[in-house]
C-alpha cells in the first residue's frame, strides 16, 4: 500500500517532468516550425491557388478557372516533361557508371588515402556552380580548348559542335551531380563485408561473377540513395540546359522559369506545371521506397 502510493507520487513527478520537457521542446522548435511552415509549406498553397487563376501578361487576375490545367492537358507540355525525364534518367545512369568504380576504389583504399581522395572529389564543389558551368562553355565551345586539342592532334578535321546540343547538357549535368552519387555509394561500399567476395572467389567464382553476384547486390542501398539524390534534382534542372543547351529542346525547368519571368508571363500555367512536377516526384519517391522496403522484407524472409 505504502509502496504503491510512493510509486504513484513518483510517477506524478515523472509526468510533470515529461510535460515540462515537452513544453520546452515546443518552445525550442517553434521558431523553426513557424519559419518552415510560413516559407516552405504555405508557399505551396499559394502555388495551388495561383494555378487556378486567370493569367495576365504581367501578373494574375483573381478569377478562378481551370484554364491552366486545360492548357496542360491539351498536350503542349508533354515534350518538355519527356525531355526532362529522359535527361534525369541518362544523368543518373552515367553517374552510376562513372561513380561506382570511383566509390569502390576510394572505399577500398587505406584510411589515409580515403580522406585525401574524398577531399579531391569534393574540392571542385566549393567553386561556384554558375562559374563551373561557364567554364564548361569555354572548354566545349566550337573554337574552345577541346576542339583545338583534338584538331591539333589530327583526331578530327572539323570542330565538333558540342555546345548547344543535348550532349553538352548531359556532360555538365553528370559533372554537377556526380558527387551526389559517389558519396552515398562510398558510404555503403565502405561498410561491405569483403570476406564474402573472397569466399565467392575461393569457391571458384570469377572476378566478374563475384562482382555481379556479391558486391553489386550488396551495394544496392547506395545505388538507390544516390539515384534519388541525382534523379530528383535533375528533373527540375533549369540553368544547365539554359546555358549549355539550345532553344529547340526546352526542358520543363526552362518552361516554368520562362512562364514566371519572361513577358508574356503565365503564372497559372507555371504553377500547375510545378504542381505536376511535385506530384511526379512524390509518386517516384513513394514507389521507390515501397519497392525498396518490399525487397528488404523479402530478403529478410528468405534469410529466415
Amino acid at each position: 500500500m505504502n509502496n504503491s502510493r510512493h510509486r504513484n507520487t513518483f510517477s506524478q513527478l515523472e509526468i510533470r517532468q515529461v510535460k515540462k520537457r515537452n513544453l520546452q521542446s515546443w518552445f525550442l522548435s517553434m521558431p523553426s516550425l513557424i519559419w518552415l511552415t510560413a516559407f516552405f509549406a504555405v508557399p505551396y498553397l499559394i502555388v495551388i491557388i495561383y494555378s487556378l487563376l486567370v493569367s495576365d501578361i504581367y501578373e494574375v487576375k483573381f478569377l478562378f478557372t481551370l484554364g491552366a490545367y486545360r492548357e496542360i492537358l491539351s498536350g503542349a507540355y508533354f515534350k518538355p516533361f519527356f525531355l526532362s525525364f529522359r535527361l534525369a534518367l541518362i544523368t543518373t545512369l552515367f553517374c552510376i557508371i562513372l561513380g561506382y568504380p570511383v566509390a569502390y576504389l576510394i572505399a577500398r583504399s587505406s584510411e589515409k588515402w580515403k580522406n585525401i581522395l574524398l577531399v579531391l572529389i569534393i574540392i571542385p564543389f566549393w567553386t561556384n556552380f554558375i562559374i563551373r558551368i561557364f567554364s564548361w562553355r569555354i572548354f566545349l565551345s566550337t573554337n574552345g580548348m577541346l576542339n583545338e586539342a583534338l584538331l591539333s592532334m589530327g583526331l578530327i578535321n572539323q570542330p565538333l559542335e558540342i555546345i548547344r546540343t543535348d550532349w553538352a547538357v548531359i556532360i555538365v549535368m553528370v559533372y554537377v551531380y556526380l558527387p551526389y552519387m559517389i558519396l552515398p555509394l562510398y558510404s555503403v561500399i565502405e561498410k561491405l563485408d569483403f570476406t564474402l567476395l573472397d569466399a565467392a572467389m575461393d569457391l571458384g567464382a570469377s572476378e566478374r561473377k563475384a562482382f555481379f553476384k556479391v558486391t553489386l547486390p550488396l551495394s544496392r542501398e547506395g545505388i538507390f540513395a544516390g539515384s534519388i539524390l541525382v534523379f530528383i534534382p535533375a528533373l527540375g534542372a533549369y540553368i544547365i540546359p539554359q546555358l549549355m543547351g539550345n532553344q529547340n529542346s526546352l526542358y520543363i525547368g526552362q518552361i516554368i522559369t520562362y512562364k514566371i519571368k519572361n513577358i508574356p508571363r503565365n503564372w497559372p500555367v507555371a504553377s500547375a506545371l510545378s504542381l505536376i512536377m511535385l506530384i511526379i516526384i512524390a509518386v517516384i519517391l513513394l514507389t521507390g521506397f515501397s519497392i525498396y522496403q518490399k525487397r528488404k522484407f523479402r530478403r529478410m524472409d528468405e534469410a529466415r
Binding site: 523553426s32 516550425l33 518552415l36 509549406a41 505551396y44 534534382p233 528533373l235 533549369y238 516554368i256 510545378s274
Partner: peptide
C-alpha cells in the same frame, strides 16, 4: 518538424524558387 526539415532537401531548387516568388507576389 522532421518532415518540414527533410522534405526541402530533396525537392528541386526550382520548386522552392517558384513557390517563394509567388508567395511574395501574393
Amino acid at each position: 518538424l522532421r518532415a518540414l526539415v527533410y522534405v526541402p532537401l530533396i525537392m528541386p531548387d526550382i520548386l522552392m524558387g517558384v513557390s517563394l516568388a509567388l508567395l511574395f507576389n501574393f
